[in-house]
């Protein structure tokens, strides 16, 4: 895949990052470098290697189902830009505007 301005601008939109036009060119070069590096890695022969294999190959540890209360709700609310009572306050969102929930 060739990295161009369009791809960078789309990635920025998806990530909600505002980019000034000068930065787009810089990012195009960064992305090209990164992709270039992966092109080198791609030359390795990975025949027979599970694409999801990990270095340790340890399975995911499973946690017991015992609840722990952190009681940090107030601290978190106080640290937020805005709170309203016990809620975090965010810019208005009409229920029909959002992407798919869960």
């Amino acid at each position: 895949m060739e990295i161009d301005r369009k791809i960078v601008e789309r990635a920025a939109t998806l990530s909600r990052i505002e980019m000034v036009p000068d930065n787009v060119e810089t990012m195009v070069r960064f992305f090209q470098d990164i992709i270039g590096h992966f092109r080198i890695l791609e030359k390795c022969d990975t025949t027979g290697v599970d694409p999801f294999s990990t270095l340790e190959d340890e399975p995911c540890p499973l946690r017991g189902d015992g609840p722990v209360r952190w009681d940090i709700g107030d601290e978190a609310l106080d640290s937020a830009p805005l709170r309203e009572g016990r809620f975090f306050r965010v810019p208005a969102i009409g229920s029909e505007e959002g992407p798919d929930e869960a």
Partner: peptide
């Protein structure tokens, strides 16, 4: 995470952790 799941009827933002 180990936060309790009994959120119905709980005060908002009390069953939260980092």
């Amino acid at each position: 995470c180990s936060c309790p799941t009994d959120y119905i009827g709980s005060e908002p933002n009390t069953l939260v952790c980092p």
